[in-house]
Amino acid sequence: MTWKANYWTLGIELQMSFKKRAARISDKTKRVARNLTELKRGESGILDRLDLPEDDARRLMELGFIPGHAVIPAHSAPGGDPRVFRVDGSEVALRRETAMRLLLR
């Protein structure tokens, strides 16, 4: 049964090293690009890209979240999530997890 345990620990090690790598990458992107949730209420930011599956990204772009356009956070539900964003002449509410994937210039 030892081989099984070995595989198991190997799996964990691989997973951990992968996680470390993933953490490093996200650290890097964090330093480079801010996302929508880091904007203060009323502060304007210029959208750079949408780090989302294509369908969601398309739908958001149709609602006005187009790279190069300004986005301003406004009111929110109690607790700060979801929040309304003013973008391209309209107001759209997004959950925090979505807003985090919209990166600013």
Binding site: D56, L60, L63, V92, A93, L94, R95, E97, R101
Partner: peptide, 10 residues
């Protein structure tokens, strides 16, 4: 479904 699907125009 993916949890990020809530997008609501006000």
């Amino acid at each position: 479904s993916s949890r990020s699907s809530f997008m609501l125009e006000m």
